[in-house]
């Protein structure tokens, strides 16, 4: 019984997160401005991170957590660098 509940919830959550990722990529390709694309990238990696944690719950393995942590850290740095580039035209001054 509890296995069915968890399995169904994980499947539905994965579908919702996949839809969120698809929507974010529509914005990323569609724009209209560069700042929209950067926020779309940010949303995309956050949703990918949530997807990995959901996979971890589905399979019962802790290893997905570490991948999620790495995505979270690298995604933050990437978004900050892109935002800085948008503001000044260069990343390191």
């Amino acid at each position: 019984m509890s296995a069915i509940i968890v399995f169904t919830a994980v499947a539905v959550a994965q579908l919702m997160l996949a839809a969120a990722m698809a929507i974010a990529s529509v914005r990323m390709f569609g724009g209209p401005r560069a700042q929209d694309r950067i926020i779309a990238l940010d949303t995309l990696y956050i949703n990918a991170m949530l997807m990995l944690v959901t996979f971890g719950i589905g399979t019962g393995r802790v290893i997905y957590f570490e991948a999620a942590l790495v995505i979270g850290m690298l995604g933050f740095v990437a978004t900050v660098a892109l935002a800085k580039f948008l503001m000044r035209g260069e990343v390191i001054e």
């Binding site: 994980v10 539905v12 959550a13 969120a20």
Partner: peptide, 19 residues
């Protein structure tokens, strides 16, 4: 687990739709 997972994923999806 199911409730928290579904609430979290639904909020992420609503955020993407609003975006």
């Amino acid at each position: 687990v199911a409730v928290f997972l579904l609430v979290g994923a639904a909020l992420a999806l609503i955020g993407a739709i609003g975006f």
